[in-house]
């Protein structure tokens, strides 16, 4: 997985970069399965490797395929990145160990969902129960965000807008 990412950083052919992005998503999905998150793995495989690769390819077809090679290594960003990385790793030293059942995240509301979820909603898949029932408001918000992003893309790229501009009318009709 790390190799894929390093290749993404190095390569200048954007087509290859997008394809490696798809491979990276699939690897992330397998990682999610290892972490017991089957729902998330499912979504990542469908969205990351499928839809977003297609969208990136569509955008490439509309723009250019090659990245311009600047030739020089960017030193200042590299220093910043390494510093931030070291700071973050220092931060992880205080984290609870991987898979520790007594980590703070596992003793708050999660046991309630796991114990009461079946009794209160009769849905065995706790992820679905929490998503749709306990945290319905969250999900409503997320759906609104997706909806708004869709409207934004339609506004930016839709046909009416283009024809109006090519006719030279321009501006919004109010």
């Amino acid at each position: 997985m790390t190799i894929t990412v390093v290749m993404v950083v190095r390569l200048h052919n954007l087509f290859a970069v997008v394809m490696l992005g798809g491979i990276y998503s699939l690897l992330a999905a397998t990682m999610f399965v290892l972490f017991d998150a089957v729902d998330v793995a499912f979504t990542e495989a469908a969205v990351g490797a499928g839809v977003s690769t297609v969208l990136l390819l569509g955008a490439l077809a509309l723009t250019s395929r090659e990245e311009k090679d600047t030739g020089k290594l960017a030193v200042i960003p590299l220093i910043i990145v390494i510093t931030v990385g070291i700071a973050l790793i220092y931060g992880t030293l205080d984290m609870p160990l991987y898979g520790d059942p007594n980590a703070p995240i596992h003793v708050h509301v999660a046991p309630y969902y796991l114990e009461r979820g079946m009794v209160e909603t009769s849905v065995p898949n706790i992820v679905t129960a929490v998503l749709a029932s306990y945290r319905g408001f969250d999900t409503l918000g997320e759906v609104c965000v997706v909806f708004t992003a869709g409207i934004g893309v339609l506004m930016l790229l839709s046909r009416e807008r283009l024809t109006r501009r090519y006719r030279g009318v321009g501006g919004d009709k109010r």
Binding site: V40, V47, G48, I105, E142, V145, L156
Partner: peptide
């Protein structure tokens, strides 16, 4: 823990929508 799964599940789909934007 199901809670992070729920959060990330929605975040992935929102992520692709914002990527498209």
């Amino acid at each position: 823990n199901p809670l992070p799964h729920v959060l990330i599940l929605t975040a992935i789909v929102v992520g692709v929508a914002t990527l498209a934007l």
